[in-house]
Design a protein around this nucleic acid. Sequence first.
DNA 1: GAGAGCGTCCATTTTACTTCA
DNA 2: TTTGAAGTAAAATGGACGCTC
Length: 329
Amino acid sequence: MVCGKRYGASSDMNAVFQHERPPCSSDVLESLWIPTSSSSFHGSNSMVNFENVSGGDSMDKSLFQPIDKEENGDDDFEGSLLHQPGKKRRLTVDQVQFLEKNFELENKLEPDRKVELAKELSLEPRQVAIWFQNRRARFKTKQLEKDYDSLRASYDKLKADHDKLLKQNGNLKNEIDSLKDELLLREKGKENLESNDDGINSPKMDIQNAIPNNTADVYVPIMVCKQEDASSAKSDVFDSDSPHCTENHSLLLEPTTTADSSHGFEPADHSDFSQDNEDDNSLTRSLLHLPPPCFLKLEDICYDDPPAISSNFGLIPVEDQHPFGFWPY
DNA sequence: GAGAGCGTCCATTTTACTTCA
DNA sequence: TTTGAAGTAAAATGGACGCTC
């Protein structure tokens, strides 16, 4: 339990007051409930100016005296609101209003202030203390309700954002799957094409013939490109009559200078491929089983417009490569 | 350190008052 | 119009706990 904690005067007190009314619902008493937000106060002890609480000089202290016997309807009314054992009386509108003003200034009650308020209102100090205590409880309840509403609104907003992100994630996954399917279809079509063309003048034969026997020869470096780029590039290559078509068969392979390599090259670094799941790796492996690339001796390559490739082959970031695997410049 | 006194907080009860059938 | 039950809000109570002396 936390004792002695102080509730600071909330800036929302007016809002609180708007929802709270004095314990009176009769028309006569309701007409007396006129919240005054511009009342002036005096004194270093933050006490509400008695005259100003209920509308100025016209309001005298009689309003804080016991209400009329007939209005009260109490036969044993003694003309005082001082505590009477066994009798519980509701505070008058003006008393409540006066207390509200003081509560707005300071929701804690110092002993001196309590006595002074009690004297002003013709109440027992104990009654004033109890009123402040109950008022703090009501204020706390209101604050809890407000906090709950605020938290609820935040939660709803976060949940909406979360659901939106989940939906976007699902859409992206679907897009990835569709792209994978498309890639597989292209690979299947390629294999079928190769099986039909197996024989003389097949690209495979050309490629194999183009592989030099001397692995120590200098080969044209290769580029690594995106999976889909490689696929599309291959399609273009095999469908093309371009004299440079064979250059692109090395897209997925890197040159190696190791003399003991049986083929003179090794599979390209797969780090640039999607590594999210095993499917991607299997796709990559399947791509590696495509027709061997064509390696040309450097001196055999003729460039109409030689690119500055010597330092970029194999180093070009995947993202920066041309989508079709051709020279990016 | 123990304890009395006083305060607040909290849960609960009591009471006043309103609404409605 | 009167009346009593039900509901509500506020006043008050009692216990637990913290702080000071």
